[in-house]
Simulated scan of single mutants.
Amino acid sequence: MTDPSTDAPLKQTPLHALHLALGVRMVPFAGYEMPLQYKAGLMAEHLHTRRKAGLFDVSHMGQLKITARSGSNADAATALETLIPADVLSLGAGRQRYGLLTNEDGGICDDLMFANMGDWFYVVVNAACKDADADRIEAAIGNRVTVERCFDRALLALQGPAAEAVLAPICPDAAAMRFMDVRETRIMDTPVIISRSGYTGEDGFEISVAAKDAEHVADALLANENVLPVGLGARDSLRLEAGLCLYGSDLDTTTSPVEASLMWSIQKARKPGGSRAGGYPGAGEVEAQLAQGTQRVRVGLQATGRAPVRGGAPLFADPNGATQVGVVTSGAFGPSVDHPVAMGYVAPAHAGTGMPLYAELRGRFVPVTVAALPFTPARFKR
């Protein structure tokens, strides 16, 4: 299979052979050949994850190991704070946070997860951005840290209310972990890095493992009757129901943390008036938007009827399409809530929950309502 945008051969994850053996529809995604759905189908995979546990291959994501050249992890944290508007310095060992890489205009270059591993930082970035992210970090702070690109490692996500019951018998450390804990441990005899986190709104774990051991770990998890393999299709509908952004759709370099309603990811110490406010790319623009407001804001959207409103659909204030006030950035049918779910950006005057809008869908203007996010409540283990 080749990448339709470049005709270059697509990369394969360490679990490619297992996907084929399980019966799967593969698609190009971020330069990789990735599973879209398995025999059970998207709807069944989605609902099974909400009710029991789904296993996702997310090995296309980029994994980085960042170590201070001085040997002090505090120095690495201080360096990262010049690129990420989050409180890295106060993050305790064994804990993880969500963060943003920003540009000089306050736009989002990527969103990521970063974890304090005690004497180094573990960072997971998006697949399509991973080389650019690593280059950006090295160019900006490479004199203070070393950046190891661990792009050959596999990454699995076990998500759903049964995730702990599935993982704990083969990884006893998992049971004691809470949301956003991370640690180096073992699954059976295999060294892994696990975090209690995910991209579905459910309790669950992300498991980083050497490529040679990936199928061994995946087989052990799939042997449990509560686990079903899940592809990118259900991953998208699950994250949409959970109100989580997809980089390249809901976030990009022209979108600021304020517009994206992601200011919760910038802790008090890094906000105006905080002890380490600013100091990251675009801080002045972000702080100006906080003070003065923005021309658009990310919201949830619920369409009338059963047809999903997809990304790119313009949003109007009136049923005749006379006044455009925003655009849908991602949308799908939400199997758990049994109605279409979407997110988009609208002018603040039209962003109130319950506000009626109209999306253009194949030449028709479909009623949509601004909805509170998430569509399904998070079920993390606090």
Rank of each mutant, 00 (worst) to 15 (best):
F151M: 02
D119Q: 08
W120Y: 15
D152Q: 11
V182L: 07
A174T: 10
A168Y: 00
G118V: 08
C109F: 10
G142C: 06
E206N: 12
I193W: 06
A157W: 11
V147F: 08
V182E: 10
G142S: 07
N126P: 12
L158T: 02
V123N: 12
L155S: 05
C150K: 13
D173M: 03
V123I: 15
V124M: 14
D133W: 00
R144Y: 02
T190D: 01
L112C: 13
V124Q: 13
V166G: 01
R196F: 08
D173S: 11
C150R: 15
M117Q: 12
A157Y: 08
A176N: 14
R196D: 08
I141G: 03
N116Q: 03
N126D: 12
A162L: 04
F179C: 09
A176I: 01
R186F: 02
D119R: 03
M177S: 09
A157P: 06
D135Q: 11
G118M: 06
P161C: 02
I108D: 13
V124H: 06
M117L: 15
D131T: 15
N116A: 13
R183V: 04
V209N: 03
E206R: 02
R178E: 13
F179K: 08
Q159S: 10
A174P: 12
V145E: 02
D135E: 12
A162S: 13
P169E: 01
A168M: 06
C129I: 06
N143Y: 00
V125Y: 10
V209P: 08
R136N: 11
L155P: 05
M177N: 05
C171I: 01
I108C: 14
D203W: 03
A140M: 09
R196K: 15
P191K: 03
C171Q: 03
Y122K: 10
G204N: 10
T146P: 00
L112S: 09
L167C: 09
I193L: 10
P172V: 03
D111L: 11
Q159K: 06
F151Q: 04
F114L: 15
R178Q: 14
G107Q: 08
